[in-house]
Simulated scan of single mutants.
Amino acid sequence: MPAAVAARPRDVRGYPVPAITPWEEGAPSFALTDYERSAQCARGRRCSVCGELMPRGPVWRVVGETESAAIGAALAAGLPYRNMAPTLEGPGHRACMLYASMVCPYLARPTARRGLSAEQPDELTVQVVRGARRGATGAVVGFADYEFAVTATQVLFRFLDVVEFLPHELSDSQLPELRRELDAEGQAR
């Protein structure tokens, strides 16, 4: 576990709570994103998982089957990938996103299904419905940078220029990469 994640507040089971997770009645709602927390992270260039500052340079995020396949196809064809459709998922540190890909039930396994729906579904959150599957593959992807817009109801992100593509079927395959990242940062546990 990255040290900054280990320092996060925890739920009653002992699970660290991501920086963008809302709390309701003293308990985190892991499947939801807090608008204000997400906006603060975007504006302050803070990791959506640990909440710590991300230095200038690449940022990472975890993607599901559709985007993973599109990125893989573009890279295999020697083409640049730029998804112009915004997403609600914010960026993070490489170690934090590798870790999140393994511990988040929805991101970790192809058969995982969302437990909750988005509170106010729209064209961006139509896939965020109870029972939706992640799909056969996922990936941890590094991007050169990100752009964001804070609207009245959402924080929207676009990611620019793929710098690293780490696809997986089962996210446990990311464990060696996470260990290397933590070792490089001097955080091995």
Rank of each mutant, 00 (worst) to 15 (best):
Q40S: 11
S48Y: 06
G131R: 13
V103G: 02
A73V: 11
V17Y: 03
Q154K: 14
F143P: 07
P9S: 07
V59H: 00
Q40E: 14
G51V: 04
L160R: 14
P2H: 07
H93A: 05
P176I: 05
S171Q: 10
V129L: 08
T66V: 06
G90I: 08
P105F: 12
D183W: 04
T153R: 13
V150N: 04
E25M: 06
G115A: 10
A27V: 11
R133G: 02
T151Q: 05
P22Q: 06
P167L: 04
A7W: 03
A4H: 09
E164W: 00
D11C: 07
D161A: 07
D11N: 13
R61F: 06
N83H: 03
E36T: 12
V140Q: 02
A108G: 01
L107D: 14
E119P: 05
A4N: 11
F30M: 09
R180S: 13
P28L: 09
A19H: 12
G26Q: 08
G64M: 03
T111A: 11
L53H: 14
R158S: 12
G138C: 02
S68T: 13
Y146D: 07
Y15C: 12
D183M: 14
A149W: 02
P176A: 08
V17C: 10
G186V: 03
D122A: 02
A6W: 00
Q120E: 15
R113H: 05
H168A: 08
C104L: 02
V62I: 11
E24R: 15
T125A: 05
S171G: 11
S48L: 10
